[in-house]
Amino acid sequence: MSEAPASATPPSAPTDESYRAGAVDLLGALAYGALTAFERLADDAQKAPTLGDKIHMATMAAQQIAYFDRMRDRLKEFGVDVLVAMRPFHAPFDAFHEYTHPKDWYEGLLKAYVGDGIAADFYREVAAFVDPETRELVYEVLSDHGHDEFVVSQVRAGIEADPKLAGRLALWGRRLVGEALSQAQRVAADRDALTSLLTGTSDRPGLDLAAISRMFSRLVANHTKRMAKLGLQA
């Protein structure tokens, strides 16, 4: 069983400066992530092999806009414009998507399942250290609404129809996990406020280096479980 994200009990008031900047970064990252997810899901919908698949992808894309609106509203409560909060994440997110552009329907599905899955795990870990209201919103935004099972059924059916697909998707999954972990580490390194949520401050507990190492081990372990659920080698 994987280790659960660590928890903390930060003040609930969004004006507390000991973690306010980190919470804004977290919401900004997720807001920009929702926008890019909307674009990718809408693009995947155009590649969908059936009308039912297209409807599913379009529904998931619309959900991302609803999430964006929720995070924009929460940022307003912090007194921060969503455009300002998202700005630091344009370059790393756009670079990730440029390096991992899917070639077909199955690669797009795997990217959403694997790449977004690792990112969601990372931001859940960070959310353990923000105020309860923000944490609840983050957990809700990052929860699965049936898309994981859709991806699993689609990929397994594709592999059953064409066994050679498994090898190609396994290689694609390894590339995705490498790029996603690099992105998470790059974002954490570039954003001191976000990192301070994990490491803590003089008056607020956080994770030490060993705990942070275990956190990244959990990200890899969860990735391995996802790939196994697809019937693929991690």
Rank of each mutant, 00 (worst) to 15 (best):
Met1Lys: 09
Glu3Thr: 09
Glu3Trp: 14
Ala8Asn: 07
Thr9Arg: 09
Ala13Cys: 15
Pro14Tyr: 13
Thr15Gln: 11
Asp16Val: 03
Glu17Gln: 15
Tyr19Leu: 08
Arg20Trp: 08
Arg20Phe: 11
Ala21Glu: 15
Ala21Leu: 15
Gly22Arg: 08
Gly22Asp: 10
Val24Tyr: 11
Leu27Asp: 15
Gly28Cys: 07
Ala31Lys: 04
Tyr32Thr: 02
Tyr32Arg: 14
Leu35Met: 05
Glu39Cys: 02
Asp43Lys: 06
Ala45Gly: 04
Ala45Cys: 05
Gln46Trp: 12
Lys47Gln: 15
Ala48Val: 00
Leu51Phe: 10
Leu51Glu: 15
Gly52Cys: 00
Gly52Glu: 11
Thr59Ile: 01
Ala61Met: 03
Ala62Ser: 13
Ala62Asp: 14
Ala62Glu: 10
Gln63Tyr: 12
Ala66Thr: 13
Tyr67Ala: 02
Tyr67Pro: 00
Tyr67Val: 00
Phe68Val: 01
Arg72Ala: 12
Arg72Gly: 03
Phe78Glu: 15
Phe78Val: 02
Gly79His: 02
Val80Tyr: 07
Leu83Gln: 13
Val84Thr: 15
Val84Pro: 07
Ala85Trp: 14
Ala85Leu: 10
Met86Val: 12
Arg87Gly: 12
Arg87Asp: 14
Arg87Phe: 10
His90Lys: 10
His90Glu: 15
Phe93Cys: 04
Ala95Met: 07
Ala95Ile: 01
His97Arg: 13
His97Ser: 03
Tyr99Phe: 04
Pro102Tyr: 07
Lys103Val: 09
Lys103Pro: 13
Lys103Cys: 07
Trp105His: 08
Leu110Tyr: 01
Lys111Glu: 09
Gly117Asn: 04
Ala119Ile: 05
Ala119Glu: 15
Ala120Arg: 11
Ala120Gly: 11
Ala120His: 15
Arg124Ile: 08
Ala128Pro: 10
Phe129Cys: 04
Val130Ser: 04
Asp131Met: 02
Pro132Asn: 06
Pro132Arg: 01
Thr134Leu: 01
Thr134Tyr: 09
Val138Phe: 04
Tyr139Cys: 01
Tyr139Gly: 00
Glu140Lys: 12
Leu142Glu: 05
Ser143Met: 02
Asp144Phe: 06
His145Gln: 05
Gly146Pro: 00
His147Arg: 03
His147Thr: 11
Val151Phe: 02
Ser153Phe: 00
Gln154Gly: 00
Val155Gln: 04
Val155Pro: 05
Gly158Lys: 07
Gly158Met: 01
Asp162Val: 06
Pro163Cys: 02
Arg168Cys: 03
Leu169Tyr: 10
Ala170Ile: 04
Arg175Gly: 15
Val177Met: 09
Gly178Ala: 04
Glu179Tyr: 10
Ala180Tyr: 08
Leu181Met: 10
Leu181Ala: 00
Ser182Asp: 13
Gln183Cys: 04
Gln185Ala: 13
Arg186Ser: 03
Arg186Met: 12
Ala189Pro: 10
Ala193Tyr: 00
Leu197Gln: 10
Leu198Ile: 02
Ser202Ile: 11
Asp203Gly: 03
Asp203Asn: 05
Gly206Asp: 02
Asp208Glu: 06
Leu209Gly: 02
Ala211Asn: 02
Ile212Lys: 09
Ile212Val: 13
Ser213Leu: 08
Ser213Lys: 05
Met215Ser: 07
Phe216Leu: 05
Leu219Arg: 11
Asn222Gly: 06
Asn222Ala: 03
His223Glu: 12
His223Asn: 13
Thr224Phe: 03
Lys225Glu: 12
Met227Phe: 13
Met227Ser: 05
Met227Pro: 14
Leu230Ala: 05
Gly231Ala: 04
Gly231Leu: 10
Ala234Ile: 03
